[in-house]
Amino acid sequence: MKHTLAVLVENRPGVLTHISGLISRRAFNIESIAAGYTEEPDTTRITIVVEGDEIEQEQVVNQLSKLIDVIKISDLTAVESIQRELALIKVKASLETRSDIINIVNIFRASIVDVSRETMVIELSGDETKIDALCQVLEEDHGIIEIVRTGKIALSRGPIPAKA
């Protein structure tokens, strides 16, 4: 099964090298990884989605915890959490097809962030399946030129932060 981990690390040069080095050395199966600043300037938060059974997942947590730069790891799979991914999709769009694309975008509650004579760029945030669904419709009906996705980020519901 998939586990979503919130990994709090020191905001220092080389931290991502240590994380990626470990993942490669231990041959862990990482589905997505997304890093960014947090409410504390010296802390970076990395959301990692791991595929594997309980034993593998325990190893990922244990081995990551061993890294000196890693401050704390929370498994957000075990608690109620909000999970989101952001995608930007550049789709083929002519004068004739624009209105259909706008309809699809509205249904998915996505937004159009750029238009040219031949293309549109659509922004969508949501869970993985929602983004997959939009991509599928756009690809089949209109043709996708390129996609960029952020990887999943996640936050627990309720008052308790991952650092607690």
């Binding site: 040069p13 080095g21 000196i68």
Partner: peptide, 14 residues
Amino acid sequence: IRGITTPITKHNYL
């Protein structure tokens, strides 16, 4: 050398 030794050190610094 920091990158090279990352998988074979407990920790490293530049």
